Amino acid sequence: MARSIQPSVPPHGKGQREAILAEAAALFALRGYHGTSMSDLAEACGLSKATLYHHYRDKSEVLTHIADGHVSRLVELCDSVERDPAVTPDDRLRVLVERFLAEYAEAQNSHRVLTEDVRFLPSPDRNRILDKERHVVQSFADAVAALRPDLAKKKLTKPLAMLLFGMLNWMFTWLRPNGALTHASVTPLVLNLFFDGVRNMPAPMPHPRLVRVPRAAPVAAKRASRARTA
């Protein structure tokens, strides 16, 4: 049975809007975006549909606020680490991993919605959110470059950042709530696999250049053919 929110603030209260988004994220994560209606959301929130539509004009706007709010918090996490004078370049990547996994642990529903449902948004909203995701990826790529400048010269920092997000972003598919493992217990594993791996990775070897073998000019090729048949 869906949880019910007991409204404790006026209809225009920020707390009620945040409660609606939290309930919507839980429903979208459980049923899917297309499997949840505004009527379902109103019932789960313990609100009338009129009150729900007072806050959000439609389901797309609800999804936009969930995804944009979550990715905006991730952007702020990245920026706060970069601004923190106590975080050295060598520690930046480790701190980012620790703080992201801590955020994911507290926002599992919102993260699942961001990962799976953004594609259903209209292009302007989707592109704005994707731009923020690119900002996050670039922050991680810059952290890899700060740790290993030689990898930046080989244009490997962004691919490595994407490999890291392949580990982080899809934990919700196997890390079960109330299971034996938690985000906190998995964090050292991620750091050992990735942070220590990048730090100790051998310098990449230069790619061998392919030698182009020039093709015979048409005239020369015709002469060679005549000589063979003469």
Rank of each mutant, 00 (worst) to 15 (best):
Ala230Asp: 06
Ser185Thr: 06
His183Ser: 06
Leu21Glu: 09
Ser72Gln: 04
Glu82His: 09
Val118Tyr: 02
Thr157Glu: 03
Gly69Cys: 07
Gly166Glu: 02
Pro218Phe: 13
Leu168Val: 07
Val81Trp: 00
Leu93Ile: 02
Ala152Arg: 15
Val95Thr: 12
Thr51Gln: 13
Glu116Tyr: 10
Thr51Cys: 07
His111Val: 10
Asp196His: 14
Arg226Glu: 12
Leu175Pro: 02
His207Lys: 14
Thr157His: 00
Ser123Val: 07
Arg212Cys: 03
Glu76Val: 08
Thr173Tyr: 11
His183Phe: 12
Glu116Pro: 06
Val62Ser: 04
Met1Cys: 12
Glu103Ala: 14
Pro204Glu: 01
Glu133Cys: 12
Phe120Ser: 14
Tyr53Asp: 11
Ala145Glu: 11
Leu121Asn: 00
Lys132Met: 10
Ala152Asn: 14
Leu189Met: 07
His135Val: 09
Pro177Phe: 00
Leu114Ile: 06
Thr115Val: 15
Ala86Trp: 01
Arg99Cys: 13
Pro122Lys: 08
Arg134Leu: 08
Phe172Ala: 02
Met162Arg: 08
Pro7Asn: 01
Leu96Ser: 08
Ala146Thr: 06
Asp142Gly: 13
Ser225Gly: 09
Val113Leu: 02
Thr229Ser: 14
Val71Tyr: 01
Met171Glu: 12
Thr36Gly: 07
Gln138Gly: 08
Leu210Ile: 10
Thr182Lys: 04
Pro10Met: 05
Arg31Lys: 08
His54Ser: 13
Val71Arg: 01
His183Cys: 05
Arg119Thr: 10
Ser39Trp: 06
